[in-house]
């Protein structure tokens, strides 16, 4: 047992279990960054809970030396909700994937977010079903050929950040598995957020969907395909930082800086905007037409579910006094038999 007054190191968050993801899987990087982030933010192992559903990503809790619960398919957010309501003092992370969180667990995904209960949901999006060996997922692109779609997928994909914004998520961000610096920054922001924090991680499944996010992860090309969001800053991207995003009517457009266009013409990122309009617009910017935004789309302060619930309990207790069983039993119309 580590004493709490000694700062913990990333390795202190490693459990004694052998990690069983495929060699080269993007999950390894997310696990490492999470362990680093928890150490950096001074998390306490005994007050931290990781809850997951089913899928490759959902093995994550076994590898963390915190409390953990490996649930059933799609239901991680619901289990985590119970944990948080029972003990609001705990820090609760939900680890899920695109199949787990958006397909079988889609209902819980939206309802958990709309409640703004203080859970940190990290969704590993690899656009494929890995654990069941290669079927298309709800985030797979139209036309994708997989074992269950040999003639190409005919489903329109779901865009998790857009969905989260649709239910008024108070914190939403995106990062890429191999972009360590950005992931650490995003996870730290999520850790600090009070309310539901949703983080989409582009994660490479090197067995069933290799290089799905190469445009955003390949060092040679990513600067032209990724837009790092910074609050209060103009939206500039490109290896030479010579491109930007400008609003044309209600549509964003990519513009080259210099030829009569300056930074003043560009969209300024505002993660604290009360309306989710800008964040939604960003969520619609997709490769190859646009650089895909990374970082924090939206971060708002709002009352959390568990805080309001506990307030109601305190208020009821203040008004009626701490519950007395005999008073409860004997309430209403009663009569005596002698």
């Amino acid at each position: 047992m580590s004493a709490i007054d000694t700062p913990l190191k990333p390795k202190d968050f490693k459990s004694d279990q052998e990690v069983r993801w495929c060699p080269g899987c993007g999950d390894y990087s997310i696990l490492s960054q999470m362990q680093k982030v928890l150490a950096d933010v001074g998390a306490e192992k005994h007050n931290t809970v990781f809850v997951s559903g089913i899928g490759c990503s959902s093995r994550f809790p076994y590898y963390m030396d915190t409390y953990g619960f490996h649930g059933i398919h799609g239901r991680a957010a619901s289990i985590a909700t119970g944990v948080k309501i029972a003990n609001p003092d705990l820090t609760v992370w939900v680890i899920t994937g695109d199949g787990d969180g958006l397909s079988i667990g889609g209902n819980h995904f939206i309802h958990t977010i709309r409640r703004n209960i203080d859970l940190k949901i990290v969704l590993f999006n690899n656009r494929i079903y890995g654990l069941t060996k290669g079927q298309y997922s709800p985030t797979s692109e139209v036309g994708k050929k997989t074992r269950s779609t040999p003639f190409g997928s005919i489903d329109n994909p779901i865009h998790p950040i857009a969905v989260a914004l649709g239910v008024e998520v108070t914190f939403v961000a995106r990062c890429v598995d191999v972009d360590v610096k950005n992931m650490i920054s995003v996870l730290k922001r999520a850790a600090a957020h009070k309310g539901t924090a949703f983080v989409e991680v582009y994660q490479n499944c090197n067995v069933y969907n290799h290089m799905a996010f190469a445009y955003a992860s390949d060092k040679k090309t990513k600067d032209d395909h990724v837009l790092y969001l910074e609050h209060g800053k103009p939206m500039i991207f490109g290896k030479e930082r010579d491109k930007g995003i400008r609003l044309n009517g209600t549509m964003p457009e990519v513009v080259d800086l210099g030829s009569g266009i300056s930074q003043d013409d560009l969209l300024i990122h505002d993660e604290k905007a009360a309306e989710p309009t800008l964040a939604y617009l960003l969520s619609r910017m997709r490769y190859p037409d646009f650089p895909e935004p990374m970082g924090v789309f939206r971060a708002l302060e709002a009352p959390t579910y568990e805080a309001v619930l506990m307030n109601q309990i305190e208020e009821a207790t203040r008004q009626k006094g701490k519950g007395n069983l005999n008073e409860l039993f004997g309430a209403g119309d009663t009569w005596e038999v002698n």
Partner: peptide, 25 residues
């Protein structure tokens, strides 16, 4: 005021799973 924490879940499955989480905690 008896520290009863009711949670109206989005569906039956979420209700049961929330119970598991609360029991664990």
């Amino acid at each position: 005021n008896f520290d009863v924490r009711t949670f109206q879940a989005e569906d039956e499955i979420a209700a049961m799973c929330s119970v598991i989480g609360a029991a664990y905690a």
